[in-house]
Protein backbone atom coordinates (compact mmCIF):
# COMPACT_ATOMS: atom_id res chain seq x y z
CA UNK A 1 0.00 0.00 0.00
CA UNK A 2 2.85 2.32 0.84
CA UNK A 3 4.38 1.32 -2.46
CA UNK A 4 1.46 2.59 -4.53
CA UNK A 5 1.58 5.98 -2.79
CA UNK A 6 5.25 6.28 -3.57
CA UNK A 7 4.61 5.43 -7.20
CA UNK A 8 1.85 7.98 -7.51
CA UNK A 9 3.97 10.65 -5.85
CA UNK A 10 6.97 9.94 -8.08
CA UNK A 11 4.67 9.73 -11.07
CA UNK A 12 3.10 13.13 -10.45
CA UNK A 13 6.48 14.69 -9.84
CA UNK A 14 7.62 13.12 -13.11
CA UNK A 15 4.65 14.73 -14.83
CA UNK A 16 5.46 18.18 -13.46
CA UNK A 17 9.11 17.66 -14.30
CA UNK A 18 8.45 16.55 -17.86
CA UNK A 19 6.15 19.53 -18.33
CA UNK A 20 8.69 22.02 -17.01
CA UNK A 21 11.59 20.52 -18.94
CA UNK A 22 9.65 20.66 -22.20
CA UNK A 23 8.52 24.21 -21.54
CA UNK A 24 12.02 25.21 -20.51
CA UNK A 25 13.65 23.75 -23.61
CA UNK A 26 11.09 25.48 -25.79
CA UNK A 27 11.52 28.80 -23.98
CA UNK A 28 15.32 28.71 -24.04
CA UNK A 29 15.52 28.01 -27.75
CA UNK A 30 12.78 30.55 -28.45
CA UNK A 31 14.46 33.23 -26.34
CA UNK A 32 17.81 32.55 -27.98
CA UNK A 33 16.36 33.25 -31.39
CA UNK A 34 13.99 36.02 -30.36
CA UNK A 35 16.25 37.83 -27.94
CA UNK A 36 14.54 41.21 -27.49
CA UNK A 37 17.84 43.07 -27.65
CA UNK A 38 18.92 41.60 -30.98
CA UNK A 39 15.39 41.91 -32.34
CA UNK A 40 15.26 45.56 -31.42
CA UNK A 41 18.69 46.23 -32.90
CA UNK A 42 17.72 44.47 -36.09
CA UNK A 43 14.54 46.45 -36.40
CA UNK A 44 16.28 49.75 -35.79
CA UNK A 45 18.93 48.82 -38.33
CA UNK A 46 16.23 48.06 -40.87
CA UNK A 47 14.60 51.43 -40.20
CA UNK A 48 17.93 53.18 -40.56
CA UNK A 49 18.61 51.50 -43.90
CA UNK A 50 15.15 52.46 -45.10
CA UNK A 51 15.66 56.05 -44.02
CA UNK A 52 19.03 56.20 -45.76
CA UNK A 53 17.53 54.88 -48.98
CA UNK A 54 14.76 57.45 -48.76
CA UNK A 55 17.30 60.20 -48.18
CA UNK A 56 19.21 59.21 -51.30
CA UNK A 57 16.02 59.22 -53.30
CA UNK A 58 15.03 62.65 -52.01
CA UNK A 59 18.50 64.03 -52.67
CA UNK A 60 18.17 62.92 -56.29
CA UNK A 61 14.77 64.57 -56.48
CA UNK A 62 16.20 67.80 -55.09
CA UNK A 63 18.96 67.79 -57.68
CA UNK A 64 16.43 67.24 -60.44
CA UNK A 65 14.18 70.02 -59.19
CA UNK A 66 17.09 72.41 -58.87
CA UNK A 67 18.03 71.79 -62.48
CA UNK A 68 14.44 72.41 -63.51
CA UNK A 69 14.38 75.61 -61.51
CA UNK A 70 17.58 76.88 -63.10
CA UNK A 71 16.09 76.22 -66.51
CA UNK A 72 12.92 78.10 -65.60
CA UNK A 73 14.95 81.03 -64.31
CA UNK A 74 16.97 81.46 -67.47
CA UNK A 75 13.80 81.13 -69.53
CA UNK A 76 12.08 83.78 -67.45
CA UNK A 77 15.05 86.15 -67.58
CA UNK A 78 15.06 86.07 -71.33
CA UNK A 79 11.43 87.11 -71.59
CA UNK A 80 11.64 90.73 -70.33
CA UNK A 81 13.72 93.40 -68.58
CA UNK A 82 11.50 93.24 -65.55
CA UNK A 83 12.14 89.60 -65.04
CA UNK A 84 15.83 90.21 -65.56
CA UNK A 85 15.89 92.57 -62.57
CA UNK A 86 13.80 90.10 -60.63
CA UNK A 87 16.35 87.40 -61.35
CA UNK A 88 19.15 89.66 -60.14
CA UNK A 89 17.24 90.29 -56.91
CA UNK A 90 16.66 86.60 -56.55
CA UNK A 91 20.33 85.87 -57.00
CA UNK A 92 21.19 88.40 -54.32
CA UNK A 93 18.61 86.92 -51.98
CA UNK A 94 19.98 83.43 -52.60
CA UNK A 95 23.50 84.64 -51.88
CA UNK A 96 22.32 86.15 -48.60
CA UNK A 97 20.40 83.02 -47.66
CA UNK A 98 23.34 80.78 -48.48
CA UNK A 99 21.58 78.89 -51.23
CA UNK A 100 24.44 79.22 -53.69
CA UNK A 101 27.99 77.94 -53.56
CA UNK A 102 30.41 80.81 -53.20
CA UNK A 103 34.14 81.16 -53.57
CA UNK A 104 36.72 83.75 -52.61
CA UNK A 105 39.63 84.41 -50.33
CA UNK A 106 39.34 82.96 -46.89
CA UNK A 107 40.76 80.61 -44.33
CA UNK A 108 40.55 76.91 -43.56
CA UNK A 109 40.62 75.97 -39.90
CA UNK A 110 40.89 72.36 -38.75
CA UNK A 111 40.23 71.15 -35.23
CA UNK A 112 41.37 67.75 -34.02
CA UNK A 113 40.92 66.08 -30.65
CA UNK A 114 43.99 66.20 -28.45
CA UNK A 115 46.44 63.35 -28.75
CA UNK A 116 48.09 64.28 -25.46
CA UNK A 117 48.10 61.71 -22.70
CA UNK A 118 45.93 62.49 -19.73
CA UNK A 119 48.50 62.19 -16.97
CA UNK A 120 46.74 63.76 -14.03
CA UNK A 121 43.17 63.50 -12.93
CA UNK A 122 42.10 65.99 -15.53
CA UNK A 123 38.62 65.83 -16.97
CA UNK A 124 39.01 63.99 -20.31
CA UNK A 125 36.25 66.20 -21.71
CA UNK A 126 38.76 69.02 -21.90
CA UNK A 127 40.76 67.11 -24.50
CA UNK A 128 38.05 66.75 -27.11
CA UNK A 129 36.60 69.32 -29.41
CA UNK A 130 33.15 70.38 -28.30
CA UNK A 131 30.27 72.04 -30.02
CA UNK A 132 30.91 75.11 -27.86
CA UNK A 133 34.52 75.35 -29.11
CA UNK A 134 33.37 75.22 -32.71
CA UNK A 135 30.60 77.71 -32.03
CA UNK A 136 33.00 80.10 -30.34
CA UNK A 137 35.48 79.82 -33.20
CA UNK A 138 32.87 80.45 -35.85
CA UNK A 139 31.44 83.35 -33.92
CA UNK A 140 34.91 84.96 -33.85
CA UNK A 141 35.20 84.39 -37.58
CA UNK A 142 31.85 86.00 -38.18
CA UNK A 143 32.88 88.94 -36.02
CA UNK A 144 36.01 89.26 -38.17
CA UNK A 145 33.85 89.61 -41.25
CA UNK A 146 33.31 86.11 -42.54
CA UNK A 147 30.72 86.25 -45.29
CA UNK A 148 30.12 82.56 -45.82
CA UNK A 149 31.09 79.62 -43.65
CA UNK A 150 30.80 75.89 -43.67
CA UNK A 151 31.52 73.26 -41.06
CA UNK A 152 32.53 69.89 -42.48
CA UNK A 153 30.76 70.73 -45.71
CA UNK A 154 27.57 72.01 -44.08
CA UNK A 155 26.84 75.61 -44.96
CA UNK A 156 26.06 77.82 -41.99
CA UNK A 157 22.93 79.82 -42.66
CA UNK A 158 20.63 81.88 -40.50
CA UNK A 159 18.81 78.85 -39.15
CA UNK A 160 21.90 76.63 -38.63
CA UNK A 161 22.60 75.26 -35.22
CA UNK A 162 25.90 74.05 -33.84
CA UNK A 163 24.94 71.77 -31.08
CA UNK A 164 26.25 68.87 -29.07
CA UNK A 165 24.80 65.56 -30.32
CA UNK A 166 26.42 62.82 -28.27
CA UNK A 167 29.94 62.33 -29.55
CA UNK A 168 29.16 64.37 -32.61
CA UNK A 169 28.14 67.92 -33.45
CA UNK A 170 24.83 68.62 -35.10
CA UNK A 171 24.82 71.20 -37.90
CA UNK A 172 21.70 71.77 -39.99
CA UNK A 173 20.40 68.66 -38.24
CA UNK A 174 23.21 66.61 -39.78
CA UNK A 175 25.80 65.10 -37.54
CA UNK A 176 29.50 65.50 -38.05
CA UNK A 177 32.37 64.31 -35.91
CA UNK A 178 35.91 65.47 -35.29
CA UNK A 179 38.14 66.37 -37.09
CA UNK A 180 36.26 69.56 -37.92
CA UNK A 181 37.13 71.58 -40.97
CA UNK A 182 35.80 75.10 -41.04
CA UNK A 183 36.02 77.08 -44.24
CA UNK A 184 35.23 80.76 -44.07
CA UNK A 185 35.21 83.33 -46.84
CA UNK A 186 36.26 86.83 -45.89
CA UNK A 187 39.41 88.81 -45.23
CA UNK A 188 41.96 86.07 -44.43
CA UNK A 189 44.27 88.28 -42.36
CA UNK A 190 41.44 89.72 -40.28
CA UNK A 191 39.96 86.33 -39.60
CA UNK A 192 43.30 84.77 -38.71
CA UNK A 193 44.09 87.62 -36.34
CA UNK A 194 40.70 87.22 -34.70
CA UNK A 195 41.54 83.62 -33.91
CA UNK A 196 45.11 84.35 -32.81
CA UNK A 197 44.05 87.03 -30.34
CA UNK A 198 45.83 86.58 -27.01
CA UNK A 199 43.87 84.21 -24.81
CA UNK A 200 41.51 83.81 -27.70
CA UNK A 201 40.29 80.69 -29.44
CA UNK A 202 43.69 79.50 -30.63
CA UNK A 203 45.46 79.94 -27.29
CA UNK A 204 42.68 78.36 -25.27
CA UNK A 205 42.25 75.30 -27.47
CA UNK A 206 46.00 74.79 -27.78
CA UNK A 207 46.27 74.89 -23.99
CA UNK A 208 44.29 71.65 -23.83
CA UNK A 209 46.30 70.09 -26.63
CA UNK A 210 43.55 70.35 -29.23
CA UNK A 211 45.21 70.47 -32.60
CA UNK A 212 44.13 73.60 -34.39
CA UNK A 213 45.58 74.66 -37.69
CA UNK A 214 44.75 77.86 -39.56
CA UNK A 215 45.48 78.11 -43.25
CA UNK A 216 44.95 81.23 -45.28
CA UNK A 217 43.95 80.70 -48.87
CA UNK A 218 43.39 83.04 -51.77
CA UNK A 219 40.57 80.92 -53.06
CA UNK A 220 38.27 78.64 -51.10
CA UNK A 221 34.83 77.34 -51.94
CA UNK A 222 31.91 77.20 -49.58
CA UNK A 223 29.06 74.83 -50.39
CA UNK A 224 25.48 75.88 -50.90
CA UNK A 225 22.96 74.99 -48.23
CA UNK A 226 21.55 71.60 -49.18
CA UNK A 227 18.62 71.37 -46.85
CA UNK A 228 15.12 72.68 -46.94
CA UNK A 229 14.07 75.98 -45.44
CA UNK A 230 10.49 76.26 -44.40
CA UNK A 231 9.05 78.92 -42.17
CA UNK A 232 6.16 77.56 -40.17
CA UNK A 233 5.80 80.33 -37.62
CA UNK A 234 7.44 83.43 -39.02
CA UNK A 235 5.10 85.37 -41.32
CA UNK A 236 6.27 88.59 -42.99
CA UNK A 237 4.49 91.64 -41.63
CA UNK A 238 2.35 93.41 -44.22
CA UNK A 239 3.78 96.87 -44.91
CA UNK A 240 1.50 99.56 -43.48
CA UNK A 241 -0.50 101.11 -46.28
Amino acid sequence: MKMIHAQIAIGSVCLVLAFTITLQIRSVSYNRVNNPNTLRAEEIQKQLRQAQENNLKYAEQVMQLKEDLAAFKTDAAESSDYSKTLLKQLERAELLAGLTSVEGSGIIVTLRDSKAENTGNIDPNLYVVHDADVLWLMNELRDAGAEAMQLNGERIISTSEIRCAGATVSVNNNRTAAPFEIIAIGDPVNMENALLMRDGVYDTLRYYGIEITIKKASKVTVNAYKGNISFKHAIPLQAAQ
Partner: peptide, 20 residues
Protein backbone atom coordinates in the same frame (compact mmCIF):
# COMPACT_ATOMS: atom_id res chain seq x y z
CA UNK B 1 2.88 5.23 -14.35
CA UNK B 2 6.22 6.92 -14.97
CA UNK B 3 6.01 6.67 -18.75
CA UNK B 4 2.40 7.84 -18.81
CA UNK B 5 3.09 10.87 -16.62
CA UNK B 6 6.21 11.73 -18.64
CA UNK B 7 4.19 11.58 -21.84
CA UNK B 8 1.38 13.71 -20.43
CA UNK B 9 3.93 16.22 -19.15
CA UNK B 10 5.75 16.48 -22.47
CA UNK B 11 2.52 16.86 -24.42
CA UNK B 12 1.26 19.52 -22.02
CA UNK B 13 4.58 21.33 -22.29
CA UNK B 14 4.44 21.21 -26.08
CA UNK B 15 0.90 22.47 -26.37
CA UNK B 16 0.99 25.29 -23.85
CA UNK B 17 0.86 28.43 -26.00
CA UNK B 18 3.28 30.85 -24.30
CA UNK B 19 6.87 30.23 -23.25
CA UNK B 20 8.78 31.48 -20.26
Amino acid sequence: IIIASLLIGVVAGLFIPSGL
